[in-house]
Simulated scan of single mutants.
Amino acid sequence: MIEFDKYGFPRASGIFETIKTVDGKVVSLNRHMRRAVDSARELGIGLPDEESIRKEIVQVITDNPHSVGRLRICFGNNLFHLTHDAYEERTEPARVNFFSETVTGSQHKLFPYDYRFSIIEAARDEGFEDSILFNSKNEITETAVANIVLMIEDQWITPPITAGLLPGVVRGIAIEECAVKVRPIHISEIPDVQSAFLLSSLRIAQPISHIGDMKVKIGEASLALQAEINAHSQAVSVG
């Protein structure tokens, strides 16, 4: 029998994918599976065959139907576990702060995930939704549970993977389909931020209203980018 931690992850180690569902359809499943396959290959984790994974996804969604859901798939050595829970859409912009310590990121979506959740909990204790992380060069990387896109000098930009961050699925869409550029972003550039977004598989594209005490504009450019990312993040049938 599998034991679980307080965040719903198996008490083991491995990789996972968190995926949004809408009316039983799954958003960007193929991109998520490509990332999982790449990580599993690099980390030496055996995965079930694709047909088995898809059958299990259909089954867990059928058994636990939600109009908007959070599908979580965990893979590990001798471990394959899925859950499908209700997800409440975020309708308000995010308030984020800076985490107080340097964080070394990973290009793999790994569990246990306790440390990342502890960052979220600390941010919420201070009245924020998430915290921006930075590396040893004082370059912005990501947040505890999302990638980040900033507008600086009228250009949408996001940090490179080499800065130490997860290659998020929605981040990939923003770069490949929405002309978001990639370059290092030093924390000293924060005062120059005109607009900003959190990108994740559940939020898709959530505008940021505040970075610490600094108010961030949510204007036409933000709404246009959000609409474009949403248009490229459509849910499709698995079966």
Rank of each mutant, 00 (worst) to 15 (best):
T62G: 03
R116E: 13
E101L: 10
M151K: 12
G212K: 08
K20T: 15
E139L: 04
F197L: 05
S237P: 15
V37N: 05
I2A: 07
I229H: 03
A12P: 12
V96Y: 01
S106C: 14
D130Y: 00
T104W: 02
I15T: 11
D213V: 08
V238S: 02
A86K: 14
G44C: 07
A123Q: 05
Y115P: 10
N64A: 09
E101S: 10
F16Y: 13
R35Y: 11
F99S: 04
H186Q: 13
E228C: 00
T91I: 12
T104R: 03
M151H: 02
L29I: 09
L82F: 01
V149N: 02
E153R: 01
I73Q: 10
E42C: 01
T141F: 04
L71G: 12
Q194L: 13
A179V: 14
I120W: 08
F4W: 08
G172H: 08
K25T: 02
V96N: 00
P207A: 07
A36V: 14
G69H: 04
V149K: 00
E51V: 12
H81K: 09
E176N: 15
L71E: 06
R183K: 11
E142A: 08
F128C: 02
A221K: 11
L29N: 07
E129V: 05
S52D: 09
A144H: 01
F4L: 14
V149Y: 00
V182A: 04
I229V: 14
L150V: 08
G172I: 14
D85V: 11
I229S: 03
P184N: 07
N78A: 03
Q155P: 13
E189R: 00
E56S: 01
S131P: 01
N135S: 01
L47A: 11
A12H: 15
S195K: 10
D85W: 05
A163F: 03
K20Q: 15
D192E: 15
F128S: 00
T18W: 03
D5M: 06
R116H: 04
S201N: 13
P112T: 09
T158F: 00
R203D: 15
I120D: 08
L82Q: 06
F99R: 05
G8K: 03
V22P: 03
M214L: 10
V216N: 06
N138C: 04
L29Q: 08
G44W: 04
R90K: 07
I140R: 00
V27Y: 01
T91K: 04
F80L: 06
H108E: 06
H81Y: 12
M33N: 06
F75V: 10
K20Y: 11
N97I: 10
P207T: 10
V26P: 12
P93S: 02
T143D: 04
R72V: 15
S200V: 11
H32L: 05
E89W: 01
D85I: 11
A40L: 04
Y87K: 06
M1C: 12
Q226Y: 11
T143A: 03
I190V: 13
Y7L: 15
N230Y: 11
A235E: 10
L223N: 14
K20I: 14
Y7T: 13
S67R: 07
T83D: 12
T18R: 04
